[in-house]
Amino acid sequence: MSILQLCSWLLLALGVVFFLAGSLGLLRFADSFSRLHAVTKADTLGLGLVVIGLSLQSHWREACLMLLIWLVVMGSGAVSCQLLARFSHEQQANPVEPADPGQED
């Protein structure tokens, strides 16, 4: 096994670890906004590592396409994180219907 392949596998494994950590954070963090952090950051980094790991094994054109996909996911992550946070914050500030019990755990 060449060094390139070894690096690729290491990066893939590391990316998967970040994905799992992100999901675990989604389950374990105490409030909704912290969960938002977990999903956006850990998954963006995990996807980046997976993309780099796969790029080492593939044709340069596929690598470019994967990089493009990563950029799209990163941009969407940053923007929708902001949108969801603002929406949820406004909703908490002036809720429409009375909050059901157990809104926060």
């Binding site: 909704s32 969960r35 999903v39 996911v73 929708s80 969801l84």
Partner: peptide, 15 residues
Amino acid sequence: PTLLDRLLTIQLFGS
């Protein structure tokens, strides 16, 4: 518990 948590899963499923 909140809508935000459920919406977050879309994000997770996307990535």
